[in-house]
């Protein structure tokens, strides 16, 4: 069998089995490159926060906090809505305290979570469609390290969800439908549908086969499109149907030429 014929055979057969993954790679790849990554991350949904700490509100000092909670680490003085608060780690958990009196604020209630979500959402005209507390068994779009969280869903284009940590009273993650599609696209791109890790055996095997099939494809490109080869080999390699139709056309053309 000539190289041309065997290449066609192997290209045809290999692509029967892995061609679909090549389509998946190109569809998912195209989606990922065409979608603006900042939009996918939901950055445009978040309102810019420009507020500074009002020093007058701070009556409870770092010193007092450490005296009462000696094990506290990563202490931060920041803002929650219009309040000044402390956030810190205590026994592997985030805690939020009021900076005016040292009172515990976390875990926050549903109403405060809604307020924080609205405060962080750029478009103030959008209503909230549902609020849910997630404490365990996380969902695909949320990392378990953020638990427990309030999931606040907005009644907006692409169904955005804001996740507000109950302990830090902060926006921890934002998701919308195009992110969700992107996530699946990536999973299909790397052929790992659960952990989304690119070092899996399935991807290895399919990539190698795709590489081999593509080399046969390149050989075919050469035979079909290289000008000199094209003329010489067309008759030999062309499909039965093609070679049948070709002489007809030429004889017709010849007839026309002679009749003129």
């Amino acid at each position: 069998m000539s190289l041309h014929r065997s290449s066609r055979k192997y290209h045809k057969w290999l692509m029967l089995f892995i061609g679909l993954q090549l389509v998946v790679w190109s569809v998912s790849g195209t989606y990922m490159v065409l979608m603006d990554i900042d939009y996918i991350h939901g950055d445009s949904l978040v309102a810019k926060q420009k507020k500074n700490i009002a020093p007058g509100q701070v009556s409870y000092s770092f010193k007092q906090l450490l005296a009462e909670h000696p094990q506290a680490s990563k202490i931060e003085l920041g803002i929650m809505l219009d309040k000044v608060v402390y956030r810190f780690n205590l026994a592997k958990k985030k805690v939020t305290l009021s900076a005016s009196n040292g009172q515990l604020i976390s875990p926050i209630s549903k109403d405060i979570a809604i307020e924080i979500a609205k405060h962080n959402y750029a478009d103030k005209s959008i209503a909230i469609s549902s609020v849910k507390l997630i404490t365990e068994n996380t969902i695909r779009e949320l990392s378990s390290r953020h638990l427990p969280v309030w999931r606040v869903e907005f009644d907006d284009f692409a169904s955005p969800s804001f996740y507000i940590s109950t302990n830090s009273a902060q926006l921890v993650t934002k998701r919308h439908d195009y992110w969700r599609i992107f996530d699946w696209m990536f999973a299909f791109h790397v052929m790992d549908y659960i952990d989304e890790s690119p070092d899996n055996k399935l991807l290895l095997i399919v990539s190698i086969l795709a590489f081999i099939a593509s080399i046969f494809g390149l050989i075919l490109t050469y035979y079909r499109l290289a000008p000199a080869q094209n003329k010489r080999r067309k008759g030999k390699s062309g499909r039965v149907k093609l070679s049948k139709s070709k002489p007809k056309k030429t004889s017709k053309a010849k007839l026309e030429a002679t009749s003129e």
Binding site: F62, K63, L66, K74, G78
Partner: peptide, 30 residues
């Protein structure tokens, strides 16, 4: 590695925020 700090010696950052024109959106003890 982080060391233990002597919280008795801590300066109150409120003074910083009040004193100068240094406004801040966050103050972290690091």
């Amino acid at each position: 590695v982080s060391q233990d700090i002597d919280h008795q010696r801590l300066f109150d950052p409120k003074e910083l925020l009040l004193a100068s024109n240094t406004s801040a959106s966050e103050v972290a003890l690091i």
